[in-house]
Design a protein around this nucleic acid. Structure first.
Length: 304
DNA sequence: TGTATTTGACCTAG
DNA sequence: CTAGGTCAAATACA
């Protein structure tokens, strides 16, 4: 993707965005240790505000020149999609966010990685520099309902109990209505690398974002329009209505320590979440630690 | 027998 | 050319 902004302008924006993001991160951090519901709600609002401002800046950031959705998805893969209207829903422009999921000693992987949706594995790939292969999953209902959602599951190198799950695309299948919170709720640990990574993504998506925001002058930020951000998914759905690329990052942590017998990826136990339980995110899962009902939890410091 | 997973080949962006 | 992402035939499983 090309960057269309003058470097001066971009630097300025970058700085502001960075500050706002940091602010949001701090709030998110506090959020993690907040005891009272009230405080958490307050912090959640602050978090949203910070990111709202960031988005506003991005939105404001200037004219967009030519669309460059050259990226697009390579394969005929997308061709089974209905014809697009204004903006092609390229893979790159799909909403994307990442969850870090840590498996708890007692909980099985299946459970831990079960986000309530049904996924079918369609590939696995060794990733350069990563000890473990990355698993590629797509929604089971892709064919029957044309659901484009996909996810990638990557086990962390250092911490074998940690999985990074990248989601892409919004579920348009019938499950979407049933699954309440497919995004684990947690705060993001302050992390330099993560910050940089996120900033890069901000940068990368900026053009796309601006362009699309431009096309949708009346961009409604869900902050006010969604009285109850029941979950981040709802949030994403809204954004996706505007074809806005954004990303987020949440990280789940829990106490752990022991090894558990796990055979990702070979045995495919990674995430065969045959959706029987949309209401999962069970109590014994690590997710419980961070009140899954909390409206804003999913922002975990970085959403984009 | 139908559905899901595995896995090597293939495709494309960078 | 390489690495990441996807396809699709073969295989496993219920």
């Amino acid at each position: 993707m090309e960057k269309n902004h003058s470097s001066g302008e971009w630097e300025k924006m970058k700085k502001e965005i960075n500050e706002l993001m940091n602010e949001g991160r701090d709030y998110a951090h506090q959020f993690g240790s907040a005891s009272s519901q009230e405080t958490r709600e307050h912090l959640a609002k602050k978090i949203l505000e910070s990111y709202h401002k960031s988005l506003t800046i991005m939105n404001y950031s200037g004219e967009l020149d030519q669309v460059s959705h050259g990226g697009g998805s390579p394969k005929s893969d997308d061709s089974d999609q209905e014809p697009l209207h204004v903006i092609k829903s390229s893979k790159k422009s799909m909403p994307r966010w990442t969850s870090k999921v840590r498996i708890a000693p007692g909980a099985g992987i299946d459970r831990t990685l079960d986000d309530g949706f049904s996924w079918r594995k369609y590939g696995q790939k060794d990733i350069l520099g990563a000890k473990f292969p990355r698993g590629y999953y797509r929604c089971t209902y892709r064919k029957s309902q044309g659901c484009e959602a996909t996810k990638q599951v990557q086990r962390s190198d250092e911490n074998q109990m940690l999985f990074e799950i990248s989601y892409r695309g919004i579920h348009s299948c019938s499950q979407a209505a049933n699954v309440r919170s497919n995004i684990p709720v947690q705060y993001l640990e302050p992390n330099q690398a993560q910050e940089h990574e996120n900033l890069d993504i901000v940068k990368e998506s900026l053009d796309n974002y601006n362009h699309q925001a431009h096309l949708n002058d009346n961009f409604h930020y869900p902050l006010s329009s969604t009285p109850n951000l029941e979950n981040s998914n709802a949030y994403m759905l809204q954004l996706s209505d505007h074809n806005t690329e954004f990303f987020g990052s949440t990280s789940i942590s829990s106490d752990l320590g022991t090894n558990i017998n796990y055979n990702f990826p070979a045995s495919g136990s990674a995430s065969h979440s045959t959706s029987n339980s949309p209401s999962t995110v069970p109590l014994e899962s690590p997710f419980e630690i961070y009140d899954p009902n909390h409206p804003y939890g999913g922002f975990g410091g970085f959403y984009s």
